[in-house]
Every structure is written in C-alpha cells, then in structure tokens.
Amino acid sequence: MSKVLEVSDLTVAYGAIRAVRNVSFRVEPGELVTIVGANGAGKTTVLNALCGLRDIRGGRIRLGTTDITHLPPQDRVALGLSQVPEGRRLFPRMTVAENLEIGAYTRREAAAVAADLEWVLELFPRLRERGRQLAGTLSGGEQQMVAMGRAVMARPDVLVLDEPTMGLAPQIVDLVLDALRAINANGVTVLLVEQNAYRALEIADRAFVLESGEIVMTGTGAELLDHPDIRNAYLGYDA
C-alpha cells in the first residue's frame, strides 16, 4: 500500500538565490531515508517543496502514480504525504487530544481514525494521561511526540520529518527515534531530515548528503557512517 516518492530536477529559489538545485532522488516504499547536511544546505527547503508549502522553480514531484508537483498542500496530505514540521509547531492553545484529532482532518472514517489514535497512544504512552492538557504546556520531548502523532494521524504513506530531535535530551532522542523506527516498521515510508547526522545515519536504510542545495553523495546509512569525508564534515571526528 505504501507509495514511492520520486523527485526529479527539483529547483527552488528565493529571489535570485537558488537554494535547491536540480535535486533528484527516489524513496522506495517502506524505506527509511535520511537527508543530512549542514545549516543552510537546503534540507528544510526540499521538505517544504515536497509538501507544497514552497513554490518551486522547476522539477517534478511524484507520489505513487500521481504527479503532485502543482497540487495544493491539503491535496498532498489527502494523497498520503504528511509532515512533522521543524520546531514541532503544535497548536499551543489546543489540547493534546485536539492536536492529534486535527492531524486526521483529511480523513472521514471515524472507526479507523479512532484505531490510529489508539496506536499513537501505544507508541507514546506518556500522551495518554496528557489528553486534556494544553499542548503549549508540555515538555519539549512530549511536544515532539504530539507532533509525530499528529502527522501519523493522517495515516500517511510517506512521512517527512524536519529535525525531530532538535533540542531534546539524549534519552528523549532515543525514544523519538525508536518510535520513528516503529512507525517505519508499520509500513510507513520515512524521509528524515537531521542535523544530528550520526543518529540519523544509524537508523537509516539509505541517505543523501545535501551541500549548498545539491546532492553530493548517496549511500546506505552504514556506508556513509564509515565514509571519511562524512566523518570529518558531519560527525565531528577525524577518520
């Protein structure tokens, strides 16, 4: 049931500056793929272009058999592409339950939505007793759980995440990445953008390295973890 995500020659520009240049990649159904790169390499821009939140200059985006290049964001969600935005961006004055429910906004089947809510609460048991609490009053880790749960509630084929471990304590990072693996094991294709390259490469099937808006290297997670250039540039130690 999962769909392939295929990007070809994607170019995104801010005025005269091309932040993303001719980027092409393919994420196979059920894969966990990560994009690593430094600040300003264009990672978030790629994700926002995928989700339709950023106008693109050129290229095509395909989800399964559908060309979604020119679809508005809400239609992409309905087709099975869902995002966990950078910095979590919950609705702070709505309750945790309301935040999760609104994730399923594009869906109509009440029973299936209720079942998915139960699954999210199994994934993040901590959220169970937080249902009526305002999302803005949660800790950073709990907020990240809600943000991931909210995106999963749309029952996506492809889930894209922007820096889900940003600013979290190491144990919480473990928890978040474990949950991400569980989501992936449940058949959801995952595209993960991370600055924490080491942790991302550890769990990724495949990875791309984005530098100044271009893909400069691809490989399996293990290959890139061992690659001397990567170790130097992104993992912070010499080969």
Binding site: P73, R89, E98, G103, Y105
Partner: peptide, 20 residues
C-alpha cells in the same frame, strides 16, 4: 470549527495538515 482554531493558532501548519 477545529480547522478554524488550527488556522488561528498556526496557518502554515494548518495548511500542512491538509486544511484548505
């Protein structure tokens, strides 16, 4: 009603969640 609240709180995210 939920969609309105979401738009009030954060327009961009509301859009990213599939709200027209």
């Amino acid at each position: 009603g939920r969609a309105w609240l979401a738009i009030r709180e954060d327009e961009d995210v509301a859009q990213a969640l599939g709200i027209d």
